[in-house]
Amino acid sequence: MKYLLSALVVLTLFVSCISNEDKNTEPTEPQKTDYTVENDKEITDYIAKNKLTAVKTDSGLYYVINEPGTGTQPTATSNVTVAYKGYFSSGKVFDQSSAAGISFGLNQVIKGWTEGIPYFKTGGSGILLIPSHLGYGSFDYSGIPGGSVLIFDVKLIKVN
């Protein structure tokens, strides 16, 4: 019994030392990776393969206006209703709205949408080709692998 009690005391001390070491260690943030060059090549290859006429912005966003629309043009802080289909350059769809669309504030979504949707007027449609730094960055998000180029077919239904 004496040996068992001694073993428990030693084990408790050992475990508490390990716990204290863990508490003193600073958590490290996962390493961020810059996919800018790879994303730009993936987007330009996609544009060439699909014979699109796209405009590149200073931030690296590419957009295609299929139908400019004739109504109100939103700003980066507008609340809008948009119908969309989101997919990778492989064509694999990762998200899609109903034809009625969804409403949200442009200051509450990824940077590529905040910047890209204001290129359309109400009734307009086109494509946003979003590099990862304007999407979810180098981190996985809800089934979207880090570093992914995101492509969206969008229709601006209305500015709310």
Rank of each mutant, 00 (worst) to 15 (best):
M1K: 13
M1E: 02
K2L: 09
L4M: 11
S6R: 12
L8V: 15
L8W: 02
V9M: 12
V10T: 12
T12I: 14
V15Q: 10
S16V: 12
S16K: 11
I18D: 05
I18A: 13
S19V: 15
S19D: 07
N20Y: 13
K23R: 15
N24I: 05
N24A: 13
T25G: 03
E26I: 15
T28N: 12
E29F: 15
Q31R: 11
K32G: 03
K32E: 15
T33H: 10
D34R: 10
Y35M: 12
T36S: 15
D40V: 07
D45K: 01
D45V: 01
D45W: 02
I47F: 08
A48F: 07
K49R: 10
L52Q: 09
T53A: 10
A54C: 06
T57Q: 11
S59Q: 06
G60Q: 01
L61A: 05
L61G: 02
L61F: 06
Y62T: 05
V64D: 07
I65T: 14
I65D: 00
N66C: 06
P68F: 03
P68A: 13
T70D: 10
T70M: 03
G71L: 08
Q73P: 03
Q73F: 04
P74M: 09
T75F: 03
T75V: 03
A76E: 14
A76S: 14
V80N: 08
T81M: 07
G86I: 01
Y87H: 15
F88L: 15
F88A: 11
S90K: 11
S90P: 12
V93H: 08
S97L: 10
A99T: 14
A99N: 12
S103L: 02
F104Q: 01
G105R: 03
L106I: 08
N107Y: 07
Q108F: 04
Q108W: 02
V109G: 02
V109A: 12
I110N: 12
W113I: 05
T114N: 10
T114M: 13
T114H: 03
I117W: 00
I117P: 00
P118Y: 07
Y119M: 07
F120M: 11
F120G: 06
S125H: 02
G126E: 10
L129F: 05
I130W: 07
P131D: 08
S132E: 08
H133Y: 08
G135Q: 05
Y136K: 06
G137Q: 06
S138W: 05
Y141H: 15
Y141R: 09
G143K: 10
P145T: 08
P145M: 10
G146M: 11
G147W: 01
L150R: 02
I151N: 04
I151D: 04
I151V: 13
F152Q: 05
F152T: 10
V154A: 03
I157E: 02
K158Q: 14
N160S: 11
